[in-house]
């Protein structure tokens, strides 16, 4: 079918905002990468253009003088520890809530789910003193626990819906063969739920890697800073030191792992997030 002139006009009229919005999304990100290669003088002289030459000195300075190496290491530890702890706590509970009939199971599920909607900011004040009592304030371990707990309801929620799709017959025949429930959970259900586990773990990891506010409250000394805190610190300091190039370089460090994960797991991430929002 031939398209009329009018249809073509409508089509290009609709394309234009799409193209403009892609520019609005992509340009600031590209620009951040470009800025990380510029000297401070060049950032002032030519803030939005291509750098004259690509030099990596900003990255080196950020890494060595601003202790970004420690912050990146801390962020990795918090991310990994938080994600693992969250799984360890969520998998058995999700399985019990999905598969075992017991009194109050629906109530417990509702309790976990409603915790997703409650503003945790109220809890952060008592949590601050609780962590202080446990000697977990200003500690990477303490922050990992807090992170794991913050994503626990969401993780349970995603995992139960994944486990609901596994046919029960596999567990039943394993049980007839004499496998204990612990064995079934570990050797049958966990491998079959792997897809869900991977999806939710990637999303949790991105969340923990990016998190800023809880780190701001629960960490104090600079050697415990996560990357987000270190960047915030460099940003505040840059008002006086004008170390913009270093700031951009540290932003690049923060965004690179997310870009890599997104390019590998794009489908999983988008699917997981939309489903989480629909049912949540």
């Amino acid at each position: 079918m031939k398209r009329t002139f009018g249809e073509r006009l409508v089509r290009s009229g609709i394309r234009l905002p799409l193209i403009l919005w892609s520019l609005a999304v992509l340009y600031p990100i590209f620009w951040m990468f470009l800025g990380s290669f510029k000297s401070n003088a060049e950032i002032y002289a030519n803030p939005w253009g291509i750098p004259e030459q690509f030099n990596f000195s900003n990255f080196v300075t950020a890494w060595t003088e601003y202790n970004l190496d420690t912050s990146i290491f801390n962020s990795f530890v918090v991310t990994a520890l938080g994600a693992v702890l969250c799984l360890v706590l969520a998998v058995p509970t999700a399985y019990a809530l999905e598969r075992i009939r017991f009194k109050g199971s629906q109530m417990l599920f509702t309790l976990y789910i409603s915790a997703m909607m409650i503003p945790m900011v109220l809890g952060w004040i008592p949590l601050f003193f609780l962590l202080a009592q446990f000697n977990m304030l200003d500690s990477i371990i303490g922050l990992s626990v807090v992170y794991a707990m913050s994503q626990l309801p969401f993780t349970i929620f995603v995992l139960t819906s994944f486990m609901g799709t596994i046919p029960k017959s596999l567990e039943e025949s394993a049980s007839v063969d004499g496998m204990s429930p612990y064995g079934i959970l570990w050797k049958i259900v966990t491998p079959l739920t792997m897809s869900g586990i991977i999806t939710v773990t990637i999303m949790n990891a991105i969340q923990f890697w990016n998190e800023y506010f809880m780190a701001l409250i629960f960490l104090q000394s600079s050697e415990n800073y996560t990357l987000a805190l270190a960047i915030d610190f460099i940003s505040n300091e840059a008002q006086y030191t004008n170390a913009w190039g270093v700031l951009f370089a540290s932003l690049v460090f923060a965004i690179l792992p997310v870009i890599i994960l997104y390019s590998i797991f794009q489908r999983r991430i988008t699917k997981g997030m939309t489903e989480g929002a629909i049912k949540g």
Binding site: W21, S22, M32, N210, E211, A228, I231, Y262
Partner: peptide
């Protein structure tokens, strides 16, 4: 492209 900012850190 449009989805990507959803997974960027608020700090960035």
């Amino acid at each position: 492209v449009f989805f990507f900012p959803n997974i960027m850190s608020v700090v960035v």
